[in-house]
């Protein structure tokens, strides 16, 4: 009786492990890097994709009147120009890791959704950061 349970369990766990470590892992890609996209452009043409990378330093232009955000997304090898309609999220800044959902149109990646990645490291500010200073920062940002 026990051996039967154990064999059954083993088979099911084995199958799950194969799914996870084998074929499934290759297909679970949350976002593409710009180089991956450029290598295989035909496959992703006119299809919504997610591109992930860093916001290149000095390339961010935000038009407040048209609510249009332009920047260059880079993975260190390839670069992609991105246009996103809407205000930049709070933690968006140059050098930040971002994931953009959207599609390519005439060589420009048109984002419909902009997600900002943040690191797993938590640091206290060097000095200050009292509630008053935070309030000031928030007011300045408006």
């Amino acid at each position: 009786m026990r051996a039967k349970y154990l064999i059954g369990l083993g088979v099911i766990l084995g199958a799950l492990a194969y799914l996870i470590f084998g074929g499934l892992g290759q297909n679970l890609v949350y976002f593409l890097t710009p180089s991956e996209y450029l290598q295989d452009q035909g496959r992703y043409q006119n299809r919504p994709v997610r591109l992930g990378g860093l916001v290149k330093q000095g390339t961010v232009h935000y038009d407040k009147d048209k609510l249009e955000l332009r920047f260059i997304l880079t993975d260190g090898v390839a670069e992609v120009p991105v246009v996103h309609k809407g205000t930049p999220p709070g933690m968006f800044k140059e050098g930040q890791g971002v994931v953009v959902e959207g599609r390519f149109q005439e060589g420009i990646f048109r984002g419909t959704n902009l997600l900002v990645k943040h690191s797993e490291a938590y640091q206290a500010p060097k000095a200050g950061w009292t509630p008053e200073e935070v309030r000031k920062l928030i007011e300045e940002a408006k």
Partner: peptide, 21 residues
């Protein structure tokens, strides 16, 4: 294991590293 938006562990049980004040 996969590319994700969620950050990795700040108290990493697999490597024992801690990235936190």
């Amino acid at each position: 294991w996969w590319r994700s938006l969620h950050q990795t562990q700040s108290i990493d049980l697999t490597t024992g590293k801690i990235h936190m004040d």
